Simulated scan of single mutants.
Amino acid sequence: MTDQRLAASNILVLGGGSGIGRGAAVGYRRAGAHVTVVERSADNAEKLAAETDVEVIVGDATSAAVVRDAIRSVVDARGSMTNLTCCVGVFDHYASLRTLTDEEFEQAAEEMWRVNVLSALSSVKQAWPSLNEARGSVTLTLSESAFHPTGGGVLYAASKWALRGAVAHLAVDFAPRVRVNGVAPGGTTGTAFSGLRALRQDQVSVDAVDGRDERIARGTLMGVASTPEDHAAAYVYLADPVGARVVTGTVINSDGGHAH
């Protein structure tokens, strides 16, 4: 490892076993950080542990008890926790209010809020004492859907807009001890989205969707469909206590630029 800017950092990544979360976790480790990942999928956790020297905890990162134990584990083992990165999320596969029944809408909306928003806020709340002591930082994962009417349906987009607001408000609330920022990736290849159980949506590998990468590339100014690794540098920068010392309340849009 040549980049050691995070050598003194102890980072907890929630939902870091695959996709963008894994990209962030590996990016942190390559920058010298000690990284602990909470991952629900035992298969993803096993693969990450086998392929990297990242510490992996198998558990549901939407569970307050699991997150509490993970924070305690990091602090007990390393003496501090300097960054919490939240990458847990569920997708709505472009569900429309025009076609949902009242029951489907209510259950899907509650599930989306609980997984994408409430779990993040709960995790940040639990991490505050440790981050405050370490003068650390929080990084939330948003989406291009928090800025543009693309990349998901209204339920997903509303949850990401909520996290955009959380970044702004938490940055004020936690200042000056803890910085709070976000990354808003665009469409990304090499990922899989967990759909809403309320709508009986199975996990779908986005790589299996015909023409998806080409469609994403056409919609970006850079003409590319990004990979999880493409977003890692944004996470690493925001977690850097020196390079990003005065950066808070900021969202980095790693979406290739919107062509329209």
Rank of each mutant, 00 (worst) to 15 (best):
H93C: 14
A109L: 14
S122M: 13
G136P: 06
L97R: 09
S145R: 11
S145Q: 12
A146C: 05
C86R: 01
G151K: 01
E111L: 01
A95Q: 14
E111T: 01
E111W: 02
A120F: 04
M112S: 08
A134K: 01
T101D: 13
Y94M: 15
A109H: 13
L131Y: 09
L97Y: 11
A127L: 06
E111A: 02
A120P: 06
V88H: 06
Q126N: 10
T139P: 02
K125A: 07
L84A: 02
A146D: 03
M112E: 01
L140E: 02
V115I: 15
R114F: 09
P129G: 06
T101G: 15
T101R: 12
G151Y: 00
F147N: 04
F91P: 02
A120L: 03
F91H: 08
L118E: 15
L121M: 05
L100A: 11
L121D: 03
V138G: 05
G151W: 01
L97D: 05
T99N: 10
P129K: 06
S137I: 04
A127I: 05
T150I: 13
G136S: 06
D102I: 12
Q107N: 13
L131S: 07
H93L: 15
E110L: 13
L121G: 03
A146M: 02
A108G: 08
E144D: 00
P149T: 09
L140R: 09
T99V: 10
F91M: 08
S137W: 08
V117Q: 03
L142V: 14
D92L: 10
A134L: 04
L97C: 03
T150R: 11
R114D: 09
Q126A: 15
H148Y: 08
A108L: 07
E110F: 05
R114S: 12
S143R: 04
A95I: 14
V88D: 02
L118W: 15
R135C: 12
A108N: 00
A120S: 11
S145E: 05
T150A: 09
W113A: 10
S119M: 02
R135S: 14
A108H: 08
L121F: 06
L131A: 01
S123G: 10
E104D: 13
A146L: 04
G151H: 04
S145D: 11
Q126W: 06
F105Y: 15
E133T: 14
P149E: 06
V138Y: 02
E103L: 04
V124H: 07
W113D: 09
T141S: 06
T150F: 05
S123C: 11
S119T: 08
S130N: 06
S96H: 11
N132W: 13
L84K: 07
L140P: 05
F105M: 13
D102M: 12
W128S: 00
E104R: 07
T150Q: 03
H93Q: 15
L84P: 09
E110K: 13
F91Y: 15
A109D: 08
N116S: 02
T85E: 07
G89V: 06
A134S: 13
L84V: 07
V115Q: 05
V115N: 02
H148L: 09
V88A: 08
T99F: 07
V138C: 00
E133R: 14
E104F: 09
T99W: 10
K125H: 11
R98D: 14
C87Q: 07
S123N: 02
L121I: 07
N116H: 01
V117S: 01
L142K: 13
S145F: 12
T150G: 00
N132A: 12
E103W: 04
D92M: 12
